[in-house]
Simulated assay, not measured.
Amino acid sequence: MANKLVYVLNGPNLNRLGKREPEIYGSQTLDDIGAMLAARGEALGMTIDMRQSNHEGALVDWLHEAQDGGAHAVLLNAGAYTHTSIALLDAIRSIKVPVIEVHLSNPHTREEFRHKSWVGMGAKGTVAGFGAQSYIVALEAAAGF
């Protein structure tokens, strides 16, 4: 049986992990998180397709591609677009693939403008506040779909 394909999509500034505000986002890089996900995914019978873009349209295109490419699930850390992008909400609602919103920090303990999540309005669920482990928790949830 083929592995289940999981897209892991990361938005703006996540390419700066390990350098950007480590007191909030931790010291692990996006490559470190990708390696953790690949190892856990293999154990769960999942193949990880991890991507990052600072451009909203690329994230929208990849959500569409997840549907068209037969993805099992999408883990989406939309970064700041979480709080601003109706385009991402519409893209999530336009596909049947379940999307799990992921955050390294807990947006509800941060600035007021981070408390509203457009992405979360379309996501199956949200995992936030556990640093890099948030991605692993979301992947394990996706394994149950």
Score class of each variant (00 low, 15 high):
Arg114Val: 00
Pro22Tyr: 15
Phe145Asp: 11
Ala2Pro: 02
Met36His: 14
Gly34Ile: 03
Leu75Cys: 09
Gln52Tyr: 06
Leu9Asp: 11
Glu111Val: 01
Gln52Arg: 10
Thr82Ile: 01
Asp49Leu: 14
Arg40Cys: 02
Ala128Gly: 06
Gln52Ala: 06
Val102Tyr: 03
Ile86Phe: 01
Ser27Ala: 15
His115Thr: 08
Ala87Asp: 02
Met46Gln: 13
Tyr81Ala: 06
Leu75Lys: 13
Leu5Arg: 14
Arg20Gly: 03
Leu9Val: 09
Ile136Trp: 09
Ile100Asn: 03
Arg20Phe: 07
Thr47Ala: 14
Asp31Trp: 07
Ala91Thr: 08
Val127Pro: 00
Asn13Met: 13
Leu37Thr: 06
Arg51Thr: 02
Arg16Lys: 14
Gly57Ser: 09
Val8Met: 12
Ala35His: 11
Ile95Lys: 08
Asp31Pro: 00
Glu56Ser: 01
Gln133Ser: 03
Asn3Gln: 14
Lys4Phe: 03
Arg110Glu: 01
Thr47Ser: 14
Asp31Leu: 10
Met50Cys: 14
Ala143Leu: 10
Gly122Thr: 03
Ala66Gly: 03
Gly70Phe: 12
Gly11Lys: 04
Leu59Met: 12
Thr47Phe: 03
Ile33Ala: 05
His103Cys: 02
Gln133Ala: 04
Lys96Tyr: 01
Ser85Pro: 08
Ala73Trp: 07
Glu140Leu: 04
Pro107Arg: 05
Ala87Val: 01
Val8Cys: 13
Ile24Gly: 10
Ala87Lys: 07
Glu23Pro: 00
Ile100Val: 06
Tyr7His: 12
Leu75Ile: 07
Gly57Cys: 02
Val99Met: 08
Val137Leu: 15
Glu112Phe: 10
Ile86Trp: 03
Ile24Ser: 13
Met1Asp: 04
Glu111Cys: 02
His72Trp: 15
Lys96Pro: 00
Ile92Lys: 09
Phe113Tyr: 15
Thr84Met: 01
Glu56Tyr: 02
Lys4Tyr: 04
Phe113Trp: 15
Val137Pro: 00
Leu63Trp: 10
Ala38Ile: 04
Gly26Arg: 10
